[in-house]
């Protein structure tokens, strides 16, 4: 019972130890201001990581999410600022478009048995290319709705703010947990990651599930894009480059097995927080280059992959003994 929670517990332990180290050096880490900012700054990463967790659990990968985030920003900026579309209508449009885009990728992956890596790589170039078709400039978004939304926040005791976008992320995680662990769809996602052939033999609707997984991932990437546009108040074609890799890193550090079948949504949440913590630490430290974030994450990722190998080898041994 406990064994399968080990990866998540380790992730949690890493976060707590990391947090304590930060706290020892910079006592202000205990303030709600820092914690509120941690959530706000990583809101878009968290949202897209929920979708990525489903994809990786099913044994797939989605490289297109960074481009979808950028496209969302550019689409919103162009439609709202250039064509005067109501922001809320623009949100609905982009979410619908992204869902179609993801469903299309899922369909290709299932119907033609093309590796997800290839299909989503193509999707990545496609979405990024479409950004440049719309515009090559960085377009600021000044719509009043944006100001209103970003003003929504709950004051936390101690001066911190729980912003609207942080709330969106927390709600997404909560919904992701319910979807993954308490629905038939969730069980089917795990089944796909466990063994596709067996899942099919056992009557799991493999095709339908695959399409929905990638649809969900693109949908959440678009939601992350909307959140990102609140955060930056602009749409820019070169935004969010490499975010797909940060996302995958967060999912894996969160204890999800890259080969699929094992992992949790809550683990991904902690994985995102660990990345945010490292980033915040380096900002506080002040003298370190921000590239140290990447180096720390790289080292952590490596450690976690080795750990997972070790754990799965250990569980095989204990079973055959």
């Amino acid at each position: 019972m406990i064994r399968r929670h080990i990866p998540v517990l380790i992730t949690l332990a890493v976060f707590i130890v990391g947090y304590l180290i930060c706290l020892a050096q910079f006592p202000s880490f205990a303030s709600t201001r820092v914690i509120g900012n941690l959530l706000t700054d990583n809101a878009f990463l968290g949202i897209v990581a929920v979708g990525m967790t489903f994809v990786i659990l099913s044994g797939g990968i989605d490289l297109s999410v960074g481009s979808v985030i950028a496209f969302t920003g550019v689409f919103l900026a162009v439609t709202i600022e250039r064509y005067g579309v109501n922001p809320y209508l623009a949100f609905v449009l982009i979410l619908g478009l992204a869902a179609l885009f993801g469903a299309g990728m899922g369909f290709l992956i299932h119907a033609f048995q093309i590796p997800a890596f290839i299909v989503t790589l193509a999707g990545m170039f496609l979405a990024r290319g479409l950004c440049f078709v719309l515009t090559t400039d960085s377009i600021p978004i000044n719509a009043p709705a944006y100001g209103q939304i970003t003003d929504i926040a709950f004051a936390l005791p101690g001066g911190g703010r729980l912003t609207f976008i942080a709330i969106v992320m927390l709600v997404t995680f909560a919904a992701g947990i319910v979807l993954a662990h308490f629905t038939r769809f969730g069980a089917n996602v795990y089944a796909l990651g466990g063994n596709r052939t067996s899942a099919e033999l056992m009557g799991v609707p493999v095709g339908k599930t695959t399409v929905r997984i990638y649809m969900l991932s693109s949908l959440l990437a678009a939601l992350a894009g909307i959140v990102f546009s609140f955060y930056t108040s602009a749409g820019y074609s070169l935004a969010a480059t490499g975010v797909e890799l940060d996302t995958i890193a967060a999912v894996v550090i969160g204890g999800t097995l890259l080969t699929g079948g094992y992992g949790t949504i809550i683990g991904t949440f902690v994985g995102v927080l660990i990345q945010g913590l490292i980033q915040t630490y380096i900002t506080f430290e002040g003298t370190l280059s921000s590239w140290w974030t990447k180096i720390a994450i790289g080292a952590l990722l490596f450690a976690f992959i080795v750990l997972q190998r070790g754990l799965s080898a250990a569980s095989v041994r204990s079973r055959s003994a």
Binding site: G193, G194, G203, V204, G261, Y262
Partner: peptide, 14 residues
Amino acid sequence: NLLPNLSVAENLFI
């Protein structure tokens, strides 16, 4: 031909 990563109950009732 079952799913090793799912719980026994889920394997029976998926």
